[in-house]
Simulated assay, not measured.
Amino acid sequence: MKKHNFSAGPCILPKSVMLKASEAVLNYDEGLSLIEISHRSKPFVDIMERARSLALELLGLEGKGYKALFLQGGASTQFLMVALNLLEKRAGYLNTGTWSTKAIKEAKIYDDIYEVASSESGGFNYIPKGYEISEEYDYFHCTSNNTIYGTQMKSFPSTNIPMVCDMSSDIFSRTLDFTQFDLIYAGAQKNMGPAGTTLVVVKEDILGKVSRKIPSMMDYKIHINKSSMFNTPPVFPVYVSMLTLQWLKDLGGIKAIEKENEKKASLIYSEIDLNPLFKGYAVKEDRSNMNATFTLENENLKETFDAMWKEAGINGLNGHRSVGGYRASMYNALSLDSVKALVEVMSELERKA
């Protein structure tokens, strides 16, 4: 029985994507597996170009001066790479959780970083508001969605300086004006594909303005000039990401999946709010549509609840160790039926209690 996969990542992927990817591992190009063909061969070059093109198309950034790259090292490498390529004197960072904290730590290696606002005092259960962004910063960095705490930025500040956003856990999940961002990065394993590749979408005209020498592997311009093929790319993760992006396009794009994501979020949060046995972790106005975090009001029910959701075929519901409780990650490929299954278990616990 296929389980209801609420894992925070690596994430659930569409069944059709999994089937096609598994077939490609056995035979993709005239008796050769996808993972044994040359990355310089035309079949894989076509895959890479298609993946990059689909990313820009879905984000509405085609023909607007942006380039899409599929790189390695995860979002954690981007914490460093962003600073290497953009930080000359000082940058502003919004601290909304673990990942932005780590991004700040890496950037500080190279120059002065100013924390424009932080929600740490509230256990990162909200998104700061009303902060100011100096136009003297080289760039402003934020994290759109926080998997651990279940918060999500519902709007983004207006600024005349480059805006960088870590969208690892909600990329392609909701409609936004993506032209407001000058650089977006996202690890594939949350909403695109398996771990091993990272999507970077960057506006070319923000590059080449720092005085430092940048190592070749960390230089966005080199990766752009080499069409994201400067070194051997992660062939399988790029292919699966391409399939997932095509699946999303065939569904009707981001606008279509956003409607489904809103239904899923509305259903789970309604149960959390109406069921007296549960309490949401994030403040209501900043709740994430990707990651619903909640706790039991009575910890004596934990053993019973855990047994019930596991019996129902639910997987990956435990909260992050730093927060505890539970976390239902509802990425694009998770069905509404899976959320209904979880809500039914929560309702059944109330009836039994």
Rank of each mutant, 00 (worst) to 15 (best):
M217D: 15
Y239F: 14
F278M: 01
A265K: 08
G325H: 07
N225R: 14
L245R: 03
M290N: 10
T198W: 03
T197L: 05
I206H: 05
M217N: 15
E204F: 07
T295Y: 15
G313S: 13
V202A: 14
K249M: 03
F305K: 00
P233V: 08
R212V: 05
A333P: 07
N289R: 09
N298F: 04
T304C: 06
L245P: 02
G319Y: 01
K203R: 15
K263F: 05
F236D: 13
S227R: 13
P215K: 12
N275D: 07
G196C: 12
A256K: 11
G196Q: 08
I268C: 01
K259G: 04
V200N: 14
R321S: 01
Y269C: 03
I254W: 04
P237E: 01
T293C: 15
K302S: 05
K310V: 06
V202R: 13
I257F: 03
V240L: 13
S241N: 15
R287I: 13
M330D: 01
N332F: 09
M217K: 15
S241Y: 09
S216T: 01
G196N: 11
N291S: 11
S211H: 12
F294L: 04
K279Q: 08
R321Y: 00
S270Q: 08
I214Q: 10
I214H: 08
I314M: 15
V200H: 14
N289A: 05
Y331N: 14
P234E: 13
V238F: 05
S228E: 13
T197C: 12
A292C: 14
Q246T: 14
K203Q: 11
H320Q: 09
G253S: 10
R327P: 02
D219S: 12
Y331K: 12
I268F: 00
K221I: 09
A333R: 03
M330T: 02
S228W: 07
K255V: 04
K263P: 04
A282F: 06
S270H: 05
L245A: 03
V201Y: 02
K264M: 01
E262C: 11
F236M: 15
K264Q: 00
M229D: 05
G316Q: 01
Y326E: 00
L243N: 10
G253D: 12
E271R: 06
L274G: 11
D205V: 10
A333D: 06
N300H: 08
E260N: 11
G196F: 10
V210D: 02
D306G: 06
T293I: 15
N289W: 11
P237I: 02
I222P: 14
E271H: 11
P237C: 04
F294N: 02
G325L: 08
G313C: 09
Y326N: 03
L277H: 00
S322R: 04
K279V: 14
N298E: 09
L207S: 04
K226Y: 06
S211W: 07
G280P: 00
S335M: 12
N231D: 09
N315G: 07
E303F: 01
N261A: 02
T293K: 08
K264F: 00
G313A: 08
